[in-house]
Design a protein around this nucleic acid. Sequence first.
DNA 1: TCTGGGGTCCTAGGACCC
DNA 2: TCTGGGGTCCTAGGACCC
Length: 405
Amino acid sequence: MPTPATPRRRIAHLDMDAFYASVELLRHPELRGQPVAIGGHGEPSRRGVVTTATYEARAFGIRSGMALRRAAELCPQCVFLPVDFDEYRRHSRRFKAAIATVTDRIEDRGIDEVYIDLTAVQGIRVDRGAPVARDIQRRVLEATGLSCSIGLAPNKLLAKIASDLHKPGGVTIVDEEDIAATIWPLPARRINGVGPKAELQLEDLGLRTIGDLAAAPLSMLVARFGGNYGRWLHEAANGRDDRPIVTASEPVSMSRETTFERDLHPHRDWQALAACLAELCREVAADLRRRGYAGRTIGVKARYDDFRIVTRDQTLPGATDDAATIRRAAFECLGRVPATRRLRLLGVRVAGLARTGAGTEPRRGAAGAADAGHAASASAAAPAPPAGAQQPELPLSGEDRPLAL
DNA sequence: TCTGGGGTCCTAGGACCC
DNA sequence: TCTGGGGTCCTAGGACCC
């Protein structure tokens, strides 16, 4: 069936430059020009990873996701600062408000990026949008003192890749006719939705660049990755993406989790674990109430000292935002977690959300990662454990135990 | 003594219903 | 007696993103 030609869109992807680190430099101007890394408690002796590093720190090889300790080894003179999400959120609201003075066609992609649909904004035609992008950069700078990079393209996929090409402070235009020269030489990993696992599988197929991927037979990709992801990879590599700009969305889940300073033994450290779980339940309940939501599905997540993750959840008859109700369900779930190893992380999640209309906090716009939509199904399902080989589980499935709460 | 915290979406099997 | 299809909900795990 012939589809009517849709008018070509002008999509911008705006990405704040080294956002957390740049916000910290506003407060600590004396650190400008020095290697600075933001992460954890700001103490490389404690557990934590780098979330953002200044470009000076990156010159030493420091990268986000790297253990703080490792970063300190690479650059002993690096300055470490703790993360301060409240402060970053304040600046995030300001830069988004500055963009909203240009258009309301904005998709929120988290604390430091947005997509903007500029199709209907005047002044795009002549030069494919560069002056409009420069104007947005100026407004963001005036509102926050922070710089950003912008990619301009016919769709979100290409705009996202483009915004990363001339950081910091760049404006990069990519059109269909630029795909072969600009996009195809890039590593496949630069496609938003190709992560470390998919990258390994692609390497295994001899596919390194986006161009390799574009030239690969569709049948090969489908055979390796399944129909959905395989077809999506093929489309993405050819620069095709018709996902719309999503200007509003509802949250799906809210969660709290914490990594312990040292791994906890499921029996010997039971009191500390129980106290931690109860605190996480209080926090997530407070989050739900503040934002005006209640949820039906309560779950816990545990990470063992070998980094394996196990989750258990339970769906209640009705939605709740009550800390005690969440706690009862969470303890039941924790009771089903095999107590086989020490734990390094515990988390509580509430999903199946419905609005209660009782929030005390102003509503957010479009939130979180709402598109992607193409998780790689790279590995086969794990086999079920043999019957009778049940592991011992955590020693509590209720609260009928003296707990140090 | 590597490896955070808060999210979204997909897959897949079993239960249960029509 | 034998072999059916959906469709939806629940649960667990996993990939990926910021």
